[in-house]
Design a protein around this nucleic acid. Structure first.
Lengths: 341, 341
DNA sequence: CAACTTTTGGCAATCGCTTGCCGCCCGGTT
DNA sequence: AACCGGGCGGCAAGCGATTGCCAAAAGTTG
């Protein structure tokens, strides 16, 4: 009863390796490897034997080792400027879902709104991740081009000829918002700006300005403000003194902050001032008053970004890959906008 | 001018390896390895030469390869039941910060409130991560013990003798909340329960019940409800028909949902019904009315969890490591609670 | 100055897996 | 009967680091 002693090698504590499986199944490690990751390459009965052995040993291949020899890591890094911001939460949720479905691991990195940190992460993780999703990248066009040339990248809300991107068509809805306000009788409208380095901010402003002009509206602009509710106070004060009767705000975070400040100051929303946010983040529907805002399929954007990235990684599809996906948006009217007094 | 041709080997596109650095610095790869990760072991001038070469080549060690030979991955997996939930957002933020500071990568996994998925992830990633942070683990005591015995683990809000944990002392503040309500004249109080499998839910209810009894209050209990705002409607309806004049709600998400529903039904908060939430998540301060809630240092809990985990990983400290950290909480009174009518 | 210690750097084995290449076995052709 | 090609497995060479062990060099000591 002692002649199956061959496998006495594995030190009890350590997880089983491919060799243990091979030994148990009576084949070479290469066969195990193939059976597990390239099933067609191996005879069915052999494969089944191997699968049984693997199951019996509770074998889990080491992603490290696999990565070392294959060159792939099966991990995607998602870089966001600020994990704190609900907008990115939704993106993270989207990428997380899709990545998991595809068997990838998500590496989450907070770049703290810093282009430098972003570039640095991109460099440091070049070997750690198979690809990168850059949410609201702060990189310059040149940096982006540079990065995209050496690794798989998809940007979200940062369009550039140099890298595949998915952009949320907030500008499209800015026009809608403007019309909404205009139809309520507003003619003096203020744009409350977000971070200066933000591409979205720039495009939103641009659209806002052009569309306003076409419609003969008077525009003001205040900012930039950091995308946090706490910036709302300053933003509200600045907007109020422009004399505008309505604001389109860079994002819901700032807008929600403004709502509070305006209430404190006795400026009624929407009677004295209408407010339109952007993004429709968590909270926009239950703040006081509920916020009229530009609803964005943020989570979906995250998912699409993952799909594009994965396609880019797949040699079969790499060529035919879309370079740009535009996500539709729409205006959601709630209680923070109303007719001009 | 042609005798430094030795290094012609590296195929332009590929990132430099330790060998390229060694070659350029004129030393063996082992020396490079040591210079970079164990500076004291190498002569200063040699080290500097190596550092220069590394910088010149823009060398980044492959974490894969490093992991393979050293056994460490420098990554920590953070498992949360639901990335969507703002509560976990704060945890993620906390862990993210602290991990980055310590030079670790964060692997974020959404276990979808499933114990099975959690156990599975733990198994699959045993080699991928050096340790795990389990936020609000759904695992049974046995599973948890099992997992903790074979890998480094810290649980958040899931205490058990079997694994190190950081728990947020919400129960402590539940008593405070009860006193607050009692002092406002409430005597019929309803506990709105969260997920049945949640340890926090169990402890909150237990404390609630005991403390109520001591104070001679009449208690009701409704639930379980999923921790989402959308559960609020059902929760509100259920709570309303108990006849209670105040609720302590499992978490802010449900509480915020209730707020909306109660308003729709014309039940005024706090005049007809007082509401106390738990967690003080993003949004609790700007919902309508602003929510009285039990404020928790969530982000800090995440940070502490990381510290404990890292200490556990460090052979020097492993022994002296704390097994339990309790984070203090306090009641934040806003506008959703008031005197009984 | 011999005998010892330290320092410092190199050699080579490993880590666990993938993959190119080779060879064996078999049934089918000519 | 000799030949062929496909299917299936094994061999062994890496992938890019780390690390135990060893030896040369440098520094100490009595």
């Amino acid at each position: 009863m002692a002649d199956s002693a061959t496998s006495a090698s594995r030190p009890a504590g350590a997880p089983p390796t491919i060799r243990d499986v091979a030994e148990m199944a009576g084949v070479a490690t290469s066969t195990v490897s193939r059976a597990l990751s390239n099933p067609g390459r191996v005879n069915r009965v052999t494969r089944e034997r191997i699968e049984e052995a693997a199951a019996a040993l509770n074998y889990v291949p080491s992603s490290q080792a696999r990565g070392l020899s294959s060159g792939r890591t099966n991990a995607i890094a998602v870089l966001v400027p600020d994990v704190t911001n609900p907008f990115y939460f939704d993106i993270i949720r989207g990428t997380q879902n899709q990545l998991k479905a595809a068997g990838y691991t998500q590496l989450l990195v907070d770049t703290e709104e810093s282009a430098e940190m972003e570039a640095d992460t991109l460099r440091k993780m070049q070997r750690t991740a198979d690809g990168f999703i850059l949410a609201a990248s702060r990189l310059t066009d040149a940096q982006l081009a540079d990065a995209a040339s050496s690794q798989a990248i998809v940007a979200i809300n940062r369009s550039s000829a140099n890298a595949p991107a998915v952009v949320i068509d907030t500008p499209g809805a800015v026009v809608q918002a403007l019309e909404h306000l205009s139809s309520l009788g507003h003619s003096k409208i203020c744009f409350v700006g977000g971070p200066a380095s933000s591409w979205s901010n720039a495009t939103r402003w641009k659209t806002f300005e052009e569309a306003s002009q076409e419609r003969g509206l008077t525009t003001f602009r205040v900012g930039p403000f950091a995308p946090k509710t706490t910036s709302g106070a300053a933003a509200a004060d600045a907007a109020a003194r422009t004399g505008a009767t309505a604001c389109i705000v860079f994002n819901d975070l700032i807008a929600i902050g403004m709502l509070q400040r305006l209430r404190e100051r006795g400026i009624r929303v929407p009677e004295d001032m209408s407010i339109v946010g952007c993004d429709d983040i968590f909270g926009a529907d239950f703040c006081n008053p509920p916020l009229t805002t530009i609803s964005s399929p943020i989570e979906q954007a995250g998912r699409v970004a993952v799909s594009m990235l994965l396609a880019q990684l797949d040699p079969l599809q790499a060529a035919s890959t879309r370079r740009l996906a535009v996500m539709p948006t729409h205006l959601t009217v709630r209680a923070s906008t109303g007719p001009v007094a």
